[in-house]
Every structure is written in C-alpha cells, then in structure tokens.
Design a protein around this nucleic acid. Sequence first.
DNA 1: AAACGCGATTGACCCAGATCAATTTTGGCA
DNA 2: TGCCAAAATTGATCTGGGTCAATCGCGTTT
Lengths: 237, 237
Amino acid sequence: MKPSVVTIEPNGHFCSDCGVRASAVCSSLDPAELGEFEHLGRRVHFSSGETVFSEEDITTSFYNVLEGVMRLYKLLPDGRRQIVGFALPGDFLGMNLSGRHNFSADAIGAVTVCQFAKAPFGRFVEDRPQLLRRINELAIRELSQARDHMVLLGRRSADEKVAAFLLVWRERQPAPKGPSDTVPLPMSRQDIADYLGLTIETVSRTFTKLERHGAIEIIHGGISLLDPARVEALAAA
Amino acid sequence: MKPSVVTIEPNGHFCSDCGVRASAVCSSLDPAELGEFEHLGRRVHFSSGETVFSEEDITTSFYNVLEGVMRLYKLLPDGRRQIVGFALPGDFLGMNLSGRHNFSADAIGAVTVCQFAKAPFGRFVEDRPQLLRRINELAIRELSQARDHMVLLGRRSADEKVAAFLLVWRERQPAPKGPSDTVPLPMSRQDIADYLGLTIETVSRTFTKLERHGAIEIIHGGISLLDPARVEALAAA
DNA sequence: AAACGCGATTGACCCAGATCAATTTTGGCA
DNA sequence: TGCCAAAATTGATCTGGGTCAATCGCGTTT
C-alpha cells in the first residue's frame, strides 16, 4: 500500500468554491486573505490505500482534507496497529512539535487533500491570529475526541465499543436530509478492529450478534440502524 | 472527595519568581506583559483528593498547574473510570470548545494552581498571538501524548502497559541530578489501574512480578528501577 | 462460467486479565 | 502504643475476547 502515482493539480481551483470552505481552517479567513491563501495550497489526489505521510517522516507539509476518508494510525515494532482516528473533509493534519509526524495517514478510498508547504504556511499564519485561533480550535476538538476514545479503549466492552463506534460515526456523516439511520462504513473490518482495540473476528461477531438481535442490519458498505435506541442503550451502558 | 476548604491568596506572589515561569503558558510573555498578566491569575491551593473542576461543569476558569499532581478523568454512568492523564506543574487546563469541561480534575496530594477567570484571560490572549501560539503548542503536545496513550490502551499487554507507564512517568519527572532510576508514584494503585485500563489487582501483581524478576524494587512512594534496560525491553516489545 | 483471491464470517478452543475473596501492610490518630 | 480504616497484596476461579482454522460470499480475471 505504498504510494504509486499521485495526481497533482497545480491550480485551476478556487478556495471560494471549495467544499470545506466553511468548516476547515480556511473558515477563519476573509475573502481578501483567501486570495493569497489560494497560492499556498495545491490539490493532491490519493487513491485507495496510498500513504499520504508516515510516522517519523520529517514534516514538510500540512494537509487539509477536502474529500474522502483517511485512517490515522501508529504501529508497534511487532506490527500491532492502533488507529488513532479517521480524518474526514475539513480536518487539518500535520501539526506537531517534534518536526516529525507522530502518526501515519493513508487514504481509505479516493482522497483529495489541500497540501501546504510547511514554511510558507507557517509564515502566513504568523501574522494572522484568527487562523492560528482556528487551528487551535481544531486541535482542542481533536483532543476532546481523543479523550473520549481513551475511555472507549480502556473501559468499554466489545459490544459497547462497536455500538459507540456506529453512533459516533453516524454523527460525523454530513446529514443529507435528517439524521439517516444508514451508517456508511468505507473502512474495512480490520480498520474498525484496530480503531476499537479489538480483533477482526470480534468486530464481525459483534455485528452479527447485533443483527441477530434486530438492532442493526449489515448492508453492503455499511450498517443500517434498525433500532437506534437499542444501539444507544448498548453504547451508553 | 469533594472540595471542602480552599485557600486563596489574593496576591503576594510574582510571576517573575514563579516555579513554572519557564515552561508554562507564561513563558511566551515578556517581562512587561508579565506585569499585566500577574493581575489576572490568583494562586489557589487544593489539598489531597479535592476536586478542582468536574466534567460537564461550565468552564469559568483556566488553570495553570504550579505545584503538585492532578488526575484528569472521565466517568461512565455506571462508575467505571478512565484517567485520561496526569497534570504536572506547567500544564494548562480548561481549554474546550463546548463551554464545559470535558473531564474532571482532582488533586493528588497538595496542589497549587494559578487560576484565571475565563473572560479576562480570553481578552488578554486576544491581542497576544505569542501566548495563543504557546497555548497551541501545549495542546499539540497533549494531543501527541493522547495518541501514544491510545496505542497503549488499545494494543499493549498488561506487562507492557505497566513497564511503559514507569518509563513515561520517570521521563516526566524534573531531573534533579541526572536521570534518576527512582520513580516516585504519588498516585494510588487504583489511579494507575484506571490510567492503564487495568484492574488494581493486575497492576499490583505486575509490580510484584517485575520485582521478583529483579527488574524493579517496590519502595515507599514509588518504584526503583533496578534494571532499566529490562523494563525498557518490556515496554518496547 | 469456472477459477481465483481476498475480505468477512463462523466455529472450536484457549488464556490474559477480570472477578471474587481473603489476608497483610500502612498510615493516621486517640 | 495500640486501634482502626483504607490501601495493597495475594490466592482461587471465571470469562470475554483472542487465537487458530475453516468456510463463505463476491467481485475479477480469463
């Protein structure tokens, strides 16, 4: 799953009609600043399974996710993997203090990112405190999510983990028309297991059990919540 | 363990000779700014077991830890607890997006904090981007620690968790004279268990096992690393 | 349409760590 | 100094989820 071919579009795109304009870091910029900002980033496409950056790589760029889903993970020397999060459109990646990425990121399905070279981006932020504040907000949101996930990893049962995962994931989906009870799951069972601190077999068995009990239906590419209240009760427990 | 008596010192202290001056948020302020800053915070003492703030409380203050250790934790409805971190001098607490604390914090032993009312502090940060940058740095450091901890919670065995905990905790101690092999543990076994996602019995048994193997010695108020290399090997695994 | 490959599911069994239950040790405090 | 309560340790037993091993389902290739 190493990157093979990467498509770069030097320009031809405008921040003003970018899909994440309202939610990403750039939401802190006014139209005038946006014009300048536009020159800093370039759209880059990754196809399914490609690695955008790896843990321990020197950080040369920051990334703004525009389209698709990415898995963010850390590996132990013996190959055990923990997925520390999934990145969705609007998420901002690459901030660190060490000068190196502290996790790896790869594309789940096709992904488009807006890539910024570290130095010019740093200079741009320098005299734009609102942008810095926006970056800080995103970091604080991530931190809160990270703490929630620690509770899940350290103190919840397999059933609770899976149920909570479905609900959190549903919540993160852009609501097309009301809160849908269909939860698309673009990632593999292995990804879900590595996110929840379980094995693939336990994830599969838990889905099957929930389906037998009538709480969910396993559909192609996702899960349908037949009885959301039941799933919520399981997750809260 | 609810707060009973809290000692407040209206002033009589100066930022310039504060113990965390060099490492905390205030390290980003020059001497002139420090004079102003001094009026914003007040020193507050908490004694062992007192709660500084609780999850879901409306955030009215930020806190800069000056002395002592705090446990930061979240509770599930049924009482299960996950400690999401320990706060040491120099740590900054209270940032959030929701307006409410997203975890609880209480003192382990005597604690001194520098407390800032939210609004005045917010105004002060407003026109001081270096302070905002410093706050952001601390948040990013926390985030990195949180991700490391997710790996520990989701993918490491009990032995690895305990060994890694000892090493990380040793690393966080202020080195008085060279890296000491004595690790002070001011928190209870229950705290350690709730931090590592284990039970108190497993933590106790693991310590005993490490001691029998000659890797550590259990001493009053902490652990002595008799064979640090052995402990490191266990933690890396 | 047969053969392939790969992710997902299912079954049988096992074990690390939880649970339940005593002690033992420690730290105030009268 | 002795007493009490809380914390820590230790032992016996149990079990949720891991491990190992087929098998299934399904989209691709030829």
